[in-house]
Design a binder for these strands. Sequence first.
DNA 1: GTCGAATGCCTTGACTGTCTAGGTACCACG
DNA 2: CGTGGTACCTAGACAGTCAAGGCATTCGAC
Lengths: 109, 109
Amino acid sequence: MAVAAKDLHGTLDALILKTLSWGPRHGYAIARWLEDTSADELVIEEGSLYPALYRMERRGWIEAEWGESELGRKAKLYRLTTVGRRQLRAETEEWARFAGAVSRILLPA
Amino acid sequence: MAVAAKDLHGTLDALILKTLSWGPRHGYAIARWLEDTSADELVIEEGSLYPALYRMERRGWIEAEWGESELGRKAKLYRLTTVGRRQLRAETEEWARFAGAVSRILLPA
DNA sequence: GTCGAATGCCTTGACTGTCTAGGTACCACG
DNA sequence: CGTGGTACCTAGACAGTCAAGGCATTCGAC
């Protein structure tokens, strides 16, 4: 029973971009994948997810297209753009630097 | 010239608590110490710092007392309380779990 | 002597991102 | 027929951070 992170504080975009780097996915599947992959340590609230997807689409990081889910249901499939791929690289580096700095201070050497 | 983290997204409290775990310090010194220790990768804005200190004092994590800085100037010295020490432990664990989960997803194995 | 930079504290206002808590619709299963 | 899973969406509140100011003191350089 993982307690799960309460707040994604700014990492959601990067996590979504990373998920999409494995191939197109629809919103619901993105959330599922992230939760599964993190062993439920990360919880993606839908009220955070969908606004994030719009935001990122508006910024040109991802593109949407209506299609079908694996189960044959109507689903909006998101795909990484070139700009999004670049953004992913930038955010990943930024995370590595930030998390490294915080960890060096907080965590026992 | 490190580009520095733009946004502390929720880690400021833990960072302050950790700083104070080495002994009492005043606000300005907390910011200095964090920036120095992180080699300027973390930047503590004063508009974030002071509200955070009030917040934490209100919650009983720290206690303030007027005194003098190392340079003999008037300064408000903050000290960790027992509750604050417990809070630091909790936030540290939370950070380790969260940062671990995000890193496992974002960063190359 | 005065001027700038550093020390030290503080406030206001806006913004961004997340969360809570709802809602819709469809489908499968018991 | 009701429940639970899939899939999308929205409104409203809230918290934390930031930018950009302000004030007072001290100290060294010019």
